[in-house]
Each structure stands twice: as C-alpha cells, then as structure tokens.
Design a protein around this nucleic acid. Sequence first.
DNA 1: TTACAATATGTCAATATTGACATATATTTA
DNA 2: TAAATATATGTCAATATTGACATATTGTAA
Lengths: 102, 102
Amino acid sequence: MKQAKKKSLEEKGWRVGDVQEFLKLSREEAAYIEIKLTLSKNLQDYRKSKHLTQGDLARRIKSSQSRVAKMESGDPSVSIDLLVRSLFALGASKKILAGMLE
Amino acid sequence: MKQAKKKSLEEKGWRVGDVQEFLKLSREEAAYIEIKLTLSKNLQDYRKSKHLTQGDLARRIKSSQSRVAKMESGDPSVSIDLLVRSLFALGASKKILAGMLE
DNA sequence: TTACAATATGTCAATATTGACATATATTTA
DNA sequence: TAAATATATGTCAATATTGACATATTGTAA
C-alpha cells in the first residue's frame, strides 16, 4: 500500500496492517489447531488399536480418564506436550510421530 | 521374573517392577526431550536462515528475546507448543515440521 | 428393559509455562 | 582498542495447563 493512501486511511481511524496481521495470525493459529487435532485423532486410533480404555491410558501416564477424553476430543485445554507424551507412552516413536504429520 | 523370586525380593524391601518402569519412563522421557531439542535446533536454523535476530522473532510472536534464547537452548521451561507456534510464525508448515522429525 | 462399562463434560486447586525485566556475556562493527 | 549489537542466564508475577473429582451421557451385554 502506498504511504499516502495508508496515511489517509489512518487519519480516518483505520488501523492499516491489521488485516494482514489478522490473516497471518489466523493462518498460524489454524496450523497450530490442525496439529493438535491431528495428534488427538491419532492418539485415539493408537489407543484403540492397543485395545486400551481411556482409563488404562490415564493410568499409564499418571493422569485421569477425563483428561484423556479431553485429549481425544481436541479440547483447547490440552497441550501438544501432553499429547506427545501420551503417544510416546503408547509406544510411538519420533518417526511415527513424523508420519502422523505428513 | 518368576513369582517366587519376585516375592523373595519384595520381602527384602525391593520394589520389583520399578526397574522396568524406570527404563520405560526414561525411554519416553528421552524421546520427549529429543523432540524438544530437535525443534530447538531447527528453530534456530530457521530463524537464522531468515536473517532475523532473536529480538525480531520475539516481536513476531509477542514474546521476549530472553524467551527465544531459552527456546533455542533447549531450556526445560519451554513447551513444545511454544516451539511449534514459533516455527509456524517463521513460515513453517505441518509438512516441514514433519520433515524435521524424520 | 436394566445393570455395567466406557466415554464426555464441567469445575477447580495445584503446578507448569509465560513474558518481562535486569544484567551478564559474547559477537560484530567502527 | 571501544562502542554497538546480539545472545545468554536468572528471577518472578501473571497466565495456562494439569490431575482429580463429580456427574452426565453413551454404548453394550444380560
């Protein structure tokens, strides 16, 4: 955007640059959420493939059934760290993790 | 381990099973730490390849230079979440992330 | 149906992670 | 060299994540 136009808009009260910033942020936010959902889904598949209940997995990682449920439902209160640690507890490796993201 | 042997050891005060549990935990812990270090190193390379200072990156992710330094040094106070969000802020994609873990 | 097992949802105190700050230590440039 | 710039390290109050709990809902076998 030309400086003159930018200045003109700013004089009218617009915060120029915010749209681009918004788009960039939402792109990054979307990528972040997508990763969490990918890990969530894979965790559930992985657990089921081992014929474990949420309670079983909870015991293994010293957590609770309700937290495992939140992990698998993509609850925003769950960190990537916890998802990754849970996958490792089920026997996944770094390579397997990489495969989940492809 | 045979049950008789196990019982005998337990009578002597040993917590049998702890060794296996310790090994399993350390295996998972090692994998978790390895992932963080991998992301740390890649973050630094990625940042440098874009000719940005730690301060520049800090501004982009609304954090501080000191936290970026901790991210790149593999400081245990840094979460995978923060590392991943930072990589996305530098333009990385899910696929690129996967490549880092291979 | 009715038990029973598994999963989902909401809450919260305890714990972990965070950005910010001060300041030390490189590293680069004039 | 010295000054400027970049990075490292320690601390801490604010915020986010956590396990635990209660309880609701869903699935499932008798």
